[in-house]
Amino acid sequence: MPSILAIWVASYIQKFFTKMTPDVIKVFVVPLFTLLITVLLTFLVVGPVANTLSDGLTNLFQAIMNFNPIVFGLVLGILWQVLVMFGMHWALIPLAISDVATNGSSSILSAALLPCFTQTGVLVAIMLKTKEEKVRTISMPAFVSSIFGVTEPAIYGVTLPMKTPFYISCGVSELMGAAMIALDIKMYSTGGLGVFVFPSLIGQDGSLLKLSLRFLLLSLAVFSPSSSNSLYEYQIYNSGGEVAKAEGKADEAAPVPKEIQQEIIASPLIGNIVPLNRVPDQVFASGAMGKGICY
């Protein structure tokens, strides 16, 4: 969050100095003063404000957790990918680390363990359905990253620009987050996400029950958004959906002009077309200036 706010502030500073600085020295002066002022403001104002927002977010989630853990799972599940976009998910990680160190386990991040796999499921549907080679090329490395818990390539590169796949992923993550909390699936150590989180779910007594339940939810987390996204695309493109209707309206709004239907060529001049070699000017008549006709 401090980085995002700093860049936002820097954009206004840059616009100001770009407008006020003569072109002769603009290349040197604008970057210099933009960075100089931005760095000072980041340390003195932007950073403290951003940290305050992060602390407020931490307190908010703690209050929701104390109120009802399942509600906490719903809220964190649906918001996790949005928090990742802005880097605000780091506000909860210190709480989870402290909770594990103090109590030996933690449920704080349980609801955040499956959103990466909901992105995986959506990407599977996109790769199977898309006809655009560029989308498939971007989706493949994003798919691999999501398996290992890194969802930024999937969010920024594929699902968020398409919007509906991102919404589907967030909706399924909400349900998975509530299920993880309701089944009391905890983390017994902190580490990576994705497939790297499996060992941290093995209880201190060596029980694999919670891990098995997590595998079941993982399957649902991958299958549900994949099937939902495929169903959405089927309805849109194969069942007379919005896209098909829009295309139909576009066709109706652009009828073929009457002149084209009758194959009429309109001319703004009156005269006769003659071969270019009959032009009195020998330069044009010889074809030195290129092929053509005379009117």
Rank of each mutant, 00 (worst) to 15 (best):
160 L>N: 07
160 L>V: 09
162 M>T: 03
163 K>M: 10
164 T>Q: 04
164 T>D: 02
165 P>S: 04
165 P>T: 05
167 Y>N: 01
168 I>Q: 00
172 V>T: 14
174 E>M: 15
175 L>W: 05
176 M>Q: 06
177 G>M: 07
178 A>T: 02
179 A>K: 03
179 A>M: 13
180 M>L: 14
181 I>A: 06
182 A>L: 06
184 D>A: 11
184 D>W: 04
185 I>C: 08
187 M>Y: 00
187 M>C: 04
189 S>T: 07
189 S>Q: 07
189 S>D: 13
190 T>F: 14
192 G>T: 02
192 G>I: 00
193 L>D: 00
195 V>R: 13
196 F>T: 11
197 V>G: 11
197 V>Y: 03
197 V>S: 14
198 F>P: 11
198 F>K: 06
199 P>F: 15
201 L>H: 11
202 I>E: 07
203 G>Y: 02
204 Q>F: 09
206 G>I: 14
207 S>P: 09
208 L>Y: 09
210 K>N: 15
210 K>Y: 13
210 K>A: 13
213 L>E: 12
213 L>G: 10
213 L>A: 07
214 R>K: 05
215 F>N: 08
215 F>R: 11
216 L>Q: 02
217 L>G: 12
218 L>C: 09
219 S>H: 00
221 A>L: 04
221 A>Y: 05
222 V>P: 13
223 F>C: 14
224 S>Y: 02
226 S>M: 15
227 S>C: 08
227 S>Q: 10
228 S>Q: 03
228 S>H: 08
228 S>P: 04
229 N>T: 05
232 Y>K: 12
236 I>D: 12
236 I>G: 01
236 I>H: 03
238 N>P: 02
240 G>F: 08
240 G>I: 06
240 G>Y: 05
241 G>V: 09
241 G>S: 07
242 E>L: 12
242 E>R: 11
244 A>I: 07
244 A>S: 14
246 A>I: 06
247 E>G: 03
248 G>S: 12
250 A>G: 05
251 D>W: 00
252 E>R: 12
253 A>Q: 14
254 A>I: 02
254 A>E: 10
255 P>M: 12
255 P>L: 12
256 V>P: 02
258 K>P: 03
